[in-house]
């Protein structure tokens, strides 16, 4: 069986892995690189649990072929915290009960971070539409939206201070 060798920058580190040509990037991350933080809720682009950043844009890693990652910059939930220091979004999810089972959480955090990096002050409606590709069945979204709002406020504050 002819596997394809792929080299990509994953969470800042260059990584090489072998994959089958039809394999999804999500499977490669989870099975080949042991990065199981990205979840598969559907495998068809509908739930967002597999959200990762690819060259600065958020995508469903279940809808990317692993060979397409060649030469790309991939960021996953495992790369969101800086070492042991949580990103403000991660912290706010914890402080505000923004997760129940937590299965959707990695996808939401990656997507919310992508939003706040583009728009530091989104409205509630903008947050809701931006996150519409991420399903959560536990929370009813309320505390997730609030956590993103609070994180945004804190990050704006930090920007003012620094």
């Amino acid at each position: 069986m002819s596997k394809i060798a792929v080299t990509a920058t994953i969470n800042g580190d260059e990584q090489e892995f072998l994959c089958e040509p039809g394999e999804s990037l999500l499977d490669a991350l989870r099975m080949r690189l042991n990065l199981t933080g990205s979840k598969e809720g559907c495998g068809s682009g509908d739930c967002g649990a597999c959200t990762v950043m690819m060259d600065g844009r958020m995508v469903c890693s279940c809808l990317v072929l692993a060979p397409e990652a060649e030469g790309k910059r991939i960021e996953t939930i495992e790369g969101v915290a800086e070492g042991s220091v949580l990103h403000p979004i991660q912290r706010k999810f914890l402080e505000m009960g923004g997760l129940q089972c937590g299965f959707c959480t990695p996808g939401f955090i990656v997507a919310a971070k992508a939003l706040l990096e583009r728009d530091p002050d989104p409205s509630e409606t903008e947050i809701r539409y931006w996150l519409a590709g991420n399903l959560c069945r536990c929370t009813g979204y309320d505390k997730i939206i609030r956590a993103v709002q609070e994180a945004a406020a804190e990050m704006r504050q930090e920007r003012v201070v620094s």
């Binding site: 682009g45 967002g48 995508v59 469903c60 809808l63 992508a114």
Partner: peptide, 9 residues
């Protein structure tokens, strides 16, 4: 179409 994730592709 779809979500932001989907439209980015």
């Amino acid at each position: 179409i779809g979500s932001v994730q989907v439209r980015n592709r």
